[in-house]
């Protein structure tokens, strides 16, 4: 079993772990997800129809409407939020969205998480230390 460590910068503190859900497509909040189920609904998105509920979401960053944070906020209240968020591109949408989702979030990595992490890998996130431990799936 291979384990890989990534180091980045805290966006939101706390610890969480879960199965990775990785996409190279940016994610829209309002009009891009269904907050009741955590499902991606943007028709052109590669993960359209899949839910990030309880997953460690690994993605480039946020796009679309400024309703981004409120949709992820609603996802937290409906219990459909991701367990943690790892991303590359810092924007106000994702910063505020991560803060109100209150799931551990890390950015500014020493290696590109989109290169290292694959869907199905097991990922432990320590938001405060900015440390991510990836266990590759067998």
């Amino acid at each position: 079993m291979t384990t890989i460590m990534l180091r980045g910068r805290k966006v939101v503190g706390g610890k969480a772990e879960g199965e990775a859900m990785v996409t190279r497509d940016r994610i829209s909040g309002w009009g891009g997800i269904d907050a009741r189920t955590g499902t991606i609904i943007e028709t052109r998105h590669e993960l359209c129809g899949q839910s990030f509920k309880g997953k460690v979401l690994v993605f480039p960053g946020a796009k679309g409407s400024s309703g981004w944070s409120s949709q992820f906020h609603l996802a937290r209240l409906t219990g459909s939020a991701p367990a943690a968020m790892l991303f590359n591109e810092m924007t106000t949408k994702i910063a505020l969205g991560a803060v109100v989702t209150r799931a551990p979030a890390v950015t500014g990595f020493d290696r590109d998480p989109l290169e290292v992490i694959e869907t199905g890998d097991w990922v432990r996130v320590d938001g405060d230390q900015g440390i991510v431990e990836v266990t590759k799936k067998a």
């Binding site: 400024s66 309703g67 981004w68 944070s69 409120s70 906020h73 924007t91 106000t92 949408k93 505020l96 969205g97 803060v99 109100v100």
Partner: peptide, 18 residues
Amino acid sequence: NAEGRESAGASMITGKTP
């Protein structure tokens, strides 16, 4: 910046933004 619902509400009552 592109503010969200939460940050805009906080800015309305404080007059501050990052």
